[in-house]
Simulated assay, not measured.
Amino acid sequence: MTPTEQKPEPGGQVSDAVRGNWVDRFAPEFSRPYLRLSRADRPIGTWLLLLPCLWGLALAAAVDGWRLFDLWIAIGCGLGAWLMRGAGCTWNDITDRDFDAAVARTRSRPIPSGQVTVKQAVAWMFAQMALAGLILLTFDWTAVLLGVSSLGIVALYPFAKRFTWWPQAVLGLAFNWGVPVAWAAHSGDWPGLPAWLLYASGIAWTLFYDTIYAHQDKEDDVLIGVKSTARLFGADTGKWLARFLVAAVTLMGLAVLLALGPGSGVLALIVALAAPWALGWHLFWQISRLDIDDPENCLRLFRTNRNAGLLPALFLACAGFL
């Protein structure tokens, strides 16, 4: 049986989704293919898109204090992350449908398995983008302009693995754009250097976790000619991950020091500086347990990056109250 003739998982489940997830158990049957297209059955991607937003919001609040509207910014970022992650995944599956049909882990996705047509997927993508756009319009106009400007990177990402060995860097540019957007939504001003350093820290973090993720598919990627940092680094992956760890920690630390300069309270600065160290500790823990030749190990560690990103978000949020 050829890859494109492979039958989908029983009930239409996607092979790398957690068994018993809420989509497969509780969502109305007609909605399941669309929710799977949006990766609603695999929430880790929404977390990885949301967490940089929370970093940017929390560091901005650490500078001049939390405000009541920040609660809506956090909620709006959460809803927007869910919708835009869904729209981005839909776009990714539209452009990658032939590749997905040739890879064991992805051929059960809704388009290659025949659950959703390309036209239906396009309509679903625009519906999600429209809803996300309505949420974005509730923010400051600087944040709106920044949010809209990210669409080009989002559109480019699915094609990056066809022309560069660094598609994870393109993903990092897109997935961490929430840092300057949330910063601008809080401050009402164009983000300064601390926000962009925090953005760069997020890119290094994305290179870290998505390289681990890409090791699941490296054998299939060789066969179909898809590039990735997992293939590029090979046996040197551990060394590169250590470099990304150092970059993420250093850049986040610099962002905190510049944002909370001498005028800030000592306790707030100490708490905020715990954020990069907490992130670095978790990334080191992942490296110590990584087996790049075990796809299940790679997927399990990749999913732990929700906690890796939550740790600095919590420390930065606490600093805003001090």
Rank of each mutant, 00 (worst) to 15 (best):
L37M: 14
D210Y: 14
W166D: 02
Y199P: 03
E9P: 02
P8R: 05
V222F: 11
R107I: 02
S31T: 14
A127I: 15
L146P: 10
F244L: 04
L257Y: 04
W277S: 08
T304W: 13
R289F: 11
V181I: 13
M1I: 13
F159E: 05
Y34K: 11
G261P: 08
T106Q: 10
P262M: 11
S149M: 10
P158I: 03
R67C: 03
P158W: 04
L279D: 10
L193T: 15
A272K: 07
W22R: 14
T117H: 05
A169P: 10
F244N: 14
F30Q: 05
I44H: 00
P191W: 00
D96R: 06
W124E: 01
L49T: 04
V122I: 15
W277F: 07
L311E: 01
Q115W: 06
I44Y: 00
D294N: 14
G114Y: 14
V179C: 00
A242T: 11
L260T: 00
V170F: 08
V63Y: 04
P8S: 09
F244P: 10
A121C: 12
W285Y: 11
L171T: 06
L197S: 08
W66S: 06
V256L: 02
L71T: 06
I292F: 08
G45F: 10
D140T: 13
G147I: 07
S228I: 11
L50K: 07
V23C: 07
